[in-house]
Amino acid sequence: MAAKNDRLALLRDYLDNDTQQIKEMLELFLKTLPSDLHELTVFCEKNDTENIRKTAHRIKSSVKLFGLNNVGDILQKMEFFNKKNTLPQQAKTLMKQVNQLMNQAFEQLREELASL
């Protein structure tokens, strides 16, 4: 239970513990992030390093706000991808890890949302 609560600690802090606002922001995260991850997955499949870099940079900070630092670290790696140093398989492997970790996190966060 402690781990679950920690996921929302920063959010509570940002929103002065306002449950309604926490709920709305959690809903927004659960709505926007899956489509961002989907986009990123497609870019990884195409080995589109420019868009991998941009998208990873954009969502990295939001993910870290939920204490998902392991996902944040992988996204940071992807942020420094470029055509010369990136193997197509490498992007796909990292993306797979991100999706796995995020699916677990989404499940936890949905439970949190239901309990608010």
């Binding site: 959010l11 940002y14 929103l15 606002q21 922001m25 927004l28 995260f29 926007t32 992030l33 954009r58 969502i59 900070s61 939001s62 706000l65």
Partner: peptide, 11 residues
């Protein structure tokens, strides 16, 4: 980042 921006705005 829509989520991060909205959070800063609300904060």
């Amino acid at each position: 980042d829509l989520f991060y921006g909205e959070l800063l705005k609300r904060h």
